[in-house]
Design a protein around this nucleic acid. Structure first.
Length: 474
RNA sequence: GUCUCCAUCGUCCAGUGGUCAGGACACAGCCCUUUCAAGGCUGCGACACGGGUUCGACUCCCGUUGGAGACGCCA
């Protein structure tokens, strides 16, 4: 067998949906694993709802995730004529027919049927038109759509995830493939595209299972071998309904903008509906590529658990390369209004390292590190009462003197001063550490104090200590 | 309403006839500690129900119930 060809075919809706991202991921993993080709195709046959910007957002999202495509992007709207080119061929088979019913007529008949509490399906009115009637309608230039005539019998296929799925043809209506304005409908465009692009595996959401039966009939009329299908379980919201814009964050780029690392996001969504077996959870894209298989994809829809994403993201941040982390965090400093230019890169990386394991999102980092960059303006109220007692400020005075004698203002040296002083005065470390931290950062929590002092440097440490010692802050 | 899919802790997954039903997130407690985190330990917590098949069912079959999805000249 030749190398597989897979595709992701999003419709430009203004954002890259989390579900689409995961579908893209599984397509990508399989294509890469089998040395296949991953195609990007934009399904914009609904011209009114599509735009260039929307398409770019999707491409940007895919790029952020690192799911690079090999071919495309192709735009369905560029190929409108291709679809209708197949019409004569299809007509010859007798498998399609013209439908002159107007949307309005259809709607009326549909309502009548529903009123009787019956299931609506196209009533085949136009299938029974005589040749003369058809001719007459055409001469009168009455607009028409093309419908597929679904034959008697059953339609079935072997889904890579669900196994054999079967449906009575009587349950499938004669569906439209070309609108009366001569544009193709989704189900038709998809089949023609997949056929022309020689797609071998169609991997998409569960919600397309019912479309699959219709598409199978088009393949039949085309006399083409259908691709393999894999229908993925849906990603659900807390209410176990299909994740939608209404019920949760659905845009992939929104996660980027809150400071989720792409690797963490990919890892997380991969695990909704798939697992290589066993207890493995943290995996890179290339590891997943080796491990992926459709057999291991779950059938059950999975809830998008923000808490677990948060955990996974913090884990990734902790283990991330400091330099890369810094680059990705810069925009967040900017939007937090923090000026970082007075620090060199080495120092900035140290700052990153000091808070790496505390941040859940990149957007947390500016607030976690603000005091490194700006003077302390406010001091934690509770901390002030608790730690900045006169007695403790006395300690700070002495400590400041001792620090002054230091040749090297480093973590270890500073620690030595504090430990020794605490021992001499029979104090607990916290008795001098907490007041110092508060004086230097205005806060009661933060990075390890001695490390913090080393990063800040002697000058800043002294000026901030002085401010506390000399002011009547109490 | 019709059709299709699905069914293990609150959530994400392991499990493919014999397991004390395992891990992770979340939650609770304890430990560590220089605060906050992180980390370590412990706890809480599930095979939807009813029939079969079998020496034996979470695992196989049927049904019930429940949930979801699709029923457009949207994609």
């Amino acid at each position: 067998m030749t190398n597989p060809r897979l595709r992701i075919a999003p419709s430009p809706t203004g954002y890259l949906h989390v579900g689409t991202a995961r579908t893209a991921l599984y397509n990508y993993l399989y294509a890469r694993q089998k040395n296949g080709v991953f195609v990007l195709r934009i399904e914009d046959t609904d011209v009114e709802r599509s735009s260039k910007e929307m398409t770019e957002i999707i491409i940007e999202g895919l790029k952020w995730l690192g799911l690079n495509h090999d071919e495309g992007p192709f735009y369905q709207s560029d190929y409108f004529s291709h679809y209708t080119d197949y019409l004569p061929q299809l007509e010859k088979t007798g498998g399609i027919y013209r439908c002159f019913c107007t949307p309005k007529e259809l709607e009326e008949r549909k309502q009548n049927v529903i009123a009787e509490k019956k299931a609506w399906k196209y009533d085949r009115k136009c299938l029974h038109l005589s040749d003369e009637e058809i001719k007459e309608n055409i001469e009168k230039k009455k607009p028409f759509a093309w419908r597929v005539r679904v034959p008697e019998g059953k339609t079935s296929y072997d889904d890579l995830i669900h196994g054999v799925i079967e449906k009575e043809n009587s349950e499938i209506e004669d569906f439209v493939i070309v609108r009366s304005d001569n544009t193709p409908v989704y189900n038709f465009a998809v089949v023609i595209d997949d056929f022309r692009m020689k797609i071998t595996h169609v991997v998409r959401g569960d919600d397309h299972i019912s479309n699959t039966f219709k598409q199978l009939h088009i393949y039949r009329l085309l006399d083409a071998t259908p691709p393999s299908f894999a229908h993925l379980p849906l990603i659900l919201d807390e209410n176990k309904a299909k994740l939608s814009k209404r019920t949760g964050t659905v845009s992939v780029l929104a996660f980027r903008d809150m400071g989720v690392l792409p690797e963490a996001f990919v890892n997380f969504i991969a695990l909704i509906g798939w697992n290589p077996g066993g207890d493995r959870e943290i995996m890179s894209l290339s590891e997943m590529t080796d491990l992926f298989s459709f057999e291991k994809v779950t059938k059950k829809g999975g809830v998008f658990d923000y808490k677990k994403l948060e955990w996974m993201n913090s884990k990734y941040i902790t283990n991330y390369d400091s330099s890369k982390l810094l680059d990705l965090t810069m925009p967040f400093f900017r939007s937090a209004g923090i000026e970082t230019s007075s620090f060199d890169r080495e120092k900035l990386m140290k700052i990153m390292d000091s808070v790496k394991e505390k941040a859940r999102y990149l957007k947390d980092i500016p607030e976690l590190t603000r005091f490194f960059f700006e003077d302390v303006k406010t001091y934690d109220e509770k901390g002030k009462a608790k730690y900045l007692t006169p007695e403790r400020i006395e300690h700070l005075k002495v400590l400041k003197e001792k620090l002054n004698s230091l040749k090297e203002f480093s973590h270890d040296e500073i620690e030595n001063i504090y430990k020794t002083y605490a021992g001499e005065k029979d104090l607990k470390g916290g008795d001098i550490i907490h007041p110092t931290r508060l004086a230097l950062s205005g806060r009661t929590e933060g990075p390890s104090l001695f490390l913090m002092m080393e990063i800040m440097g002697k000058e800043t440490v002294f000026s901030r200590l002085t401010k506390i010692i000399e002011s009547d802050i109490l």
